[in-house]
Design a protein around this nucleic acid. Sequence first.
DNA 1: TATGAATGAGTATTCATTCAT
DNA 2: CATGAATGAATACTCATTCAT
Lengths: 202, 202, 202, 202
Amino acid sequence: MTDIQSVKKKVISINKREYIIEAAIDLFTEKGLEKTKIADIVKQANIAQGTFYLYFPSKLSVMPAIAEVMVEKIHAELINSVNQEASFTEQIKQIVQTIFIFTKKYERIQALVYAGIASTEHLRNWESIYEPLYNWVDALLRKAAQQGSIEAINEESAKLLIGLIESSAEQAYLYDETDEKMAQNKQEAIIPFLLNALEANG
Amino acid sequence: MTDIQSVKKKVISINKREYIIEAAIDLFTEKGLEKTKIADIVKQANIAQGTFYLYFPSKLSVMPAIAEVMVEKIHAELINSVNQEASFTEQIKQIVQTIFIFTKKYERIQALVYAGIASTEHLRNWESIYEPLYNWVDALLRKAAQQGSIEAINEESAKLLIGLIESSAEQAYLYDETDEKMAQNKQEAIIPFLLNALEANG
Amino acid sequence: MTDIQSVKKKVISINKREYIIEAAIDLFTEKGLEKTKIADIVKQANIAQGTFYLYFPSKLSVMPAIAEVMVEKIHAELINSVNQEASFTEQIKQIVQTIFIFTKKYERIQALVYAGIASTEHLRNWESIYEPLYNWVDALLRKAAQQGSIEAINEESAKLLIGLIESSAEQAYLYDETDEKMAQNKQEAIIPFLLNALEANG
Amino acid sequence: MTDIQSVKKKVISINKREYIIEAAIDLFTEKGLEKTKIADIVKQANIAQGTFYLYFPSKLSVMPAIAEVMVEKIHAELINSVNQEASFTEQIKQIVQTIFIFTKKYERIQALVYAGIASTEHLRNWESIYEPLYNWVDALLRKAAQQGSIEAINEESAKLLIGLIESSAEQAYLYDETDEKMAQNKQEAIIPFLLNALEANG
DNA sequence: TATGAATGAGTATTCATTCAT
DNA sequence: CATGAATGAATACTCATTCAT
């Protein structure tokens, strides 16, 4: 086999893997974990039943890949939405808004990832998947601390911040009746709560 | 049928339902959702296979009932652990500790409830299940505000508080490698974060 | 127990039995034999699950009762529709029409009775159920033979006549696409076929 | 995949489907519809449990396929038993006898086909299944009419003829006590009835 | 008679996984 | 690498029947 063919094949394969992940995200979101069959996934991914097993050993083993993709997505959105030159308060607002929008868009996936985790012993490496996101927020906070915009920072701060916003967004979109005005209220309530928590200065 | 007989019957039925829920909590906790068979549940609940279906239409449909029970449990634990006479700071510590302990104890179930919820349309009334818990915290905060222990309170505060602590506890026990020292760190990190957020005084 | 009470009870019971039969006819017709559960029948009949077994030992054992009712119905319709004073040719027309209308009205029941028979060893006494109907037709034919309207009569003639008409009506309503004009054609085709078969004279 | 391979695969699949149908006919005949389990069918067909569902979605859905096969069988038997050179009267006798023998042989299946059909919406195309049989009889009648053996023919005649004989045979074997002498009587009664109906000439 | 909750044996059906092509 | 028909163990679920009230 020539190198070019080899490369082409590799490319094709990567696509298949991605198709599977995308299909799984769609279907898990739509029908839930339990009710999504491998048969559904391969159908949606437009591949053969057996091909699935060339990429993943089981249905749940797709979960870490999904988690990775989700974190990448939100990370990218944050990088894109948060203005590094803006004031810290402004940045927090942007983060909150971005996470709310994201949570709304991918509604159930978040909880589904929990589900996947709960159903398997597979992954405790969850935190390592979240790592880049935490690092990004951590850097943001450290910079703000250096500039005197906030006081108290430690290695948990970033995680608390993310956790707080996500949990509020989930309440807004997953469980409540979710009228948009209420979601807005929740967003607005978080900001001062967070700024206080971080002892932000004007 | 006499009234007494009628009452007795009703009682028996309620018991059966509760037996099922308790059995499901036990088994889901122990073996996970997937590996728990209806056969296991009815055996543990000491009822016939068919009887299960008189109370629940499927395995997943037990989830909302479990969620309710879980909230009742944590509510009870909080009432039991939080000293109404203690200082606000002390109370927050007690709340955090209680939630961490609870999350550790019911590790798996917690995430399974998410799973169950996420896998079904069963409940958007999740918030109504959480209601009593929120109300309890809300009352606590209002009292503290009246006494001048904290400043900023609104109707979201209780939810943010619970959400923050739960999300941190979940990170500690569901995703991380979970050595107990790290969990301790997380608990300690939350306290000042929270107290600041609420603008607690001294 | 007084006589009056006894009578009243008896009346009530007869009603229940009839409710069951009527419910079974409805449901068998609507959903088929296999898919109709005893639970469905008792629900439709507005009686308790256990009560069914006071009247019938099994689902299929309702079949003979249904058959009986159906034969009574068609018998009554024939008595009502056939003019004893009319010419024989006219009478045949009336019989054919009545059976077609009846088959249309009770569409699938006919075939369902077959089904019931096929699924059980219960009843070979089918013929005895049909007996009054056959006798009625037989008498009609004998009278016509006496009057010289037809020639050949034997003890099978009535059965052949009924069987022929029913089979044609079933073709019309059970299996074909069943436009009414075609059904009309079938009816018209039978008359001369039958009259010839019986060697009817003008 | 080469053409030959493709063909082979197709052949294998068709065989499996046919094995299922044959097994179902055998078992339904032997044990009845209710008592025949899918497990029995797959065992007899020598395939795996799951394979059944690749070809049929349920037990009842085999019925139309069985009906088709049954019509093919009776058609084949008629072609085989009726002497094209014999007199029309002789041919009618052969037809009657063949149908009686066939009905006796497949006693149960006959009614089961009704049952299957009646229990489902599967086929209104029953007539199209019967089509080849009707055509064959129709051709026979037309030839007889051309030769002057009978008078009245129209497009319903074949259906009436088949319906009449079948209904009589069913009476003989499905419902009556079925002693063979009585069955013989019924056969003999049909012949002149039919010949008259068709205005057969000596 | 009438009830209807409880039963649990019995079975249809599912679906992850394999493997010959 | 890719396929998808075939597999069959595993299980959810059904439903006729019972029986204490």
